[in-house]
């Protein structure tokens, strides 16, 4: 069973959106972290991660998302998530991610809440 994953990046003037597709495990998580780090190094401190096309996330993938939150915090930045399923949102809240990152239903709301 192959896990096909992809990341689409849309960088605007004030913020950037990273849209994942596929199973968010360590492999996709590490790639996402690398892309986020490159955006941070370019000066982007307001990031949206859109998980609408990621149906399954494991706890290792989530731990890498936390590393991105922490990296942004060190640059006074903000990470907003959108496109989470009800189960993903419940898991994120249980892991206290909602205290340090925003969770919004869609990109428009996530961008409006920076």
């Amino acid at each position: 069973m192959a896990n096909k994953f992809d990341i689409q990046i849309r960088a605007e003037k004030q913020y950037a959106i990273l849209e994942t597709a596929g199973y968010l495990n360590d492999a996709l998580g590490e790639r996402l972290s690398k892309e986020a780090q490159e955006l941070i190094e370019k000066g982007y401190t307001q990031l949206v991660i859109n998980l609408d096309k990621t149906a399954l996330i494991n706890s290792i993938g989530i731990s890498i998302l936390i590393e991105i939150i922490e990296a942004l915090e060190q640059h006074d930045g903000t990470l907003n998530f959108c496109g989470l399923s009800a189960t993903q949102e419940r898991t994120f809240r249980m892991m206290a991610i909602a205290k340090y990152a925003g969770i919004f239903p869609d990109e428009k709301t996530a961008i409006a809440n920076f």
């Binding site: 706890s59 989530i62 731990s63 936390i66 590393e67 939150i69 922490e70 915090e73 189960t87 419940r90 898991t91 249980m94 892991m95 206290a96 991610i97 205290k99 340090y100």
Partner: peptide
């Protein structure tokens, strides 16, 4: 292999079985 946690309540590892219990 994870970096140290900045926020102990948002720790990066050790969640697997807690997630199972919650779900």
């Amino acid at each position: 292999n994870s970096k140290p946690d900045l926020h102990p309540e948002m720790r990066k590892r050790g969640w697997g079985l807690e997630i199972v219990h919650a779900l």
